[in-house]
């Protein structure tokens, strides 16, 4: 009876404190009818994966502006796979140079959104790619 809602973990890995983008995305996903779990700041990849598993989310959306994305994003994807949760859609956003995107995609990040991406684009991407 109850309809299946998309559940998303919006996560801030690493030490970066810029959460404007993460908060805007969280609100936009909520307004698009999704259930959003917000991780808060300074999460290690292990903490993010534990939350993703316990919350049984369909999507993990990470935002990072500090430049540590090549280190942190793939680690989250890898740990998720180790937990048998490789069906979770992992996405990244923030200040990410175009030249890093192929590396991230090869390492389990389904899509990368750079500054200026309309939130509607992220919403559509999730709707079209969850399961």
């Amino acid at each position: 009876m109850s309809e299946k809602l998309i559940r998303v973990l919006v996560a801030k890995p690493g030490l970066d404190g810029h959460d404007r983008g993460a908060k805007v995305i969280a609100r936009a996903l909520r307004d698009a009818g999704m259930e959003v779990i917000y991780s808060g700041l300074r999460q290690t990849p292990e903490q993010i994966v534990a939350a993703a598993v316990q919350e049984d989310v369909d999507v993990v959306a990470m935002s990072l502006l500090s430049g540590a994305h090549n280190h942190l994003f793939p680690k989250v994807a890898k740990l998720l796979a180790e937990e048998g949760a490789d069906d979770v859609l992992v996405m990244g956003g923030g200040v990410i140079p175009d030249s890093d995107i192929p590396f991230l995609k090869e390492n389990g990040i389904a899509e990368v959104f750079t500054p200026g991406t309309p939130t509607g684009e992220v919403v559509n991407y999730i709707k079209n790619n969850v399961r």
Binding site: E3, L5, A26, R27, L29, R30, D31, A32, G33, M34, E35, V36, I37, Y38, S39, G40, Q43, Q47, A51, E55
Partner: peptide, 14 residues
């Protein structure tokens, strides 16, 4: 209105 929600309680138990 949308059925969506932001669930933020985990933050304080991270």
């Amino acid at each position: 209105f949308t059925g969506g929600a932001i669930l933020g309680d985990r933050v304080r138990m991270s």
